[in-house]
Simulated scan of single mutants.
Amino acid sequence: MSDFSSTLALSASGMKAQSERLRHVSENIANADTPGYHRKTTAFEEVVAGGRSTGAVQLGPVELDQTELSRIYDPGNPLADESGYYDGSNVDLVVEIADAREAQRSYEANLRMFDQTRQMSSALLDLLRR
């Protein structure tokens, strides 16, 4: 049964990491029009316990994308400089939507693995009861 438990834990860690990733993507999309906003990026890290790899994943530290901010011409904007430009954000909605779709599909794959493991352990218990 410990194999089932560890598989469930691995699936759960993947689902948690993907849901946190999706939260950052949502924040990026929500702030796409916020002047001066830098896109948040993150990477997955392997969970290590007692010097050994557990196979689980977690989200690493959040970093700000340092690519150049878009320059927007709007002389009437209070943030505009003397030439009429102000800094927009560096969020690309196409990239964010692709990241959201990838996170969603990865979450669903982990969910299917979790459900399959749960069904297998339940079937095993039914067999052992007979």
Rank of each mutant, 00 (worst) to 15 (best):
Y86L: 06
P35K: 14
N90E: 06
V57F: 08
M113P: 02
G36P: 01
S13I: 02
R118V: 00
L64D: 12
Y107R: 07
M1G: 08
F44E: 07
A30M: 12
E96G: 07
P78M: 08
V94E: 15
S19Q: 13
M113A: 15
A98K: 05
R118A: 06
T117K: 09
P75I: 02
Q116M: 11
S53P: 09
D126F: 13
P75F: 15
A32G: 04
Q58G: 04
L128E: 10
T54V: 03
D87C: 01
S122Q: 09
E68M: 02
F4R: 06
P35W: 13
Q18N: 08
G50S: 02
A80S: 13
V47W: 05
S13P: 05
G36Y: 11
A56Q: 10
A9P: 00
A123D: 07
A56T: 03
S121I: 07
L93I: 01
G76Q: 13
P78F: 13
D92Q: 14
N28W: 11
L128N: 09
I72F: 13
S53A: 15
L128P: 01
F4T: 01
K40S: 10
S106H: 14
L79E: 01
L125A: 09
G14W: 06
R21C: 05
E45Y: 05
A12M: 06
M15D: 02
L111T: 01
V95A: 15
T7E: 06
V25Q: 15
S122K: 07
Q119K: 14
P61I: 00
R71S: 12
R130Q: 12
R130M: 03
T7D: 10
E20Q: 13
T117H: 11
S2M: 10
L64T: 00
T67C: 06
N31F: 13
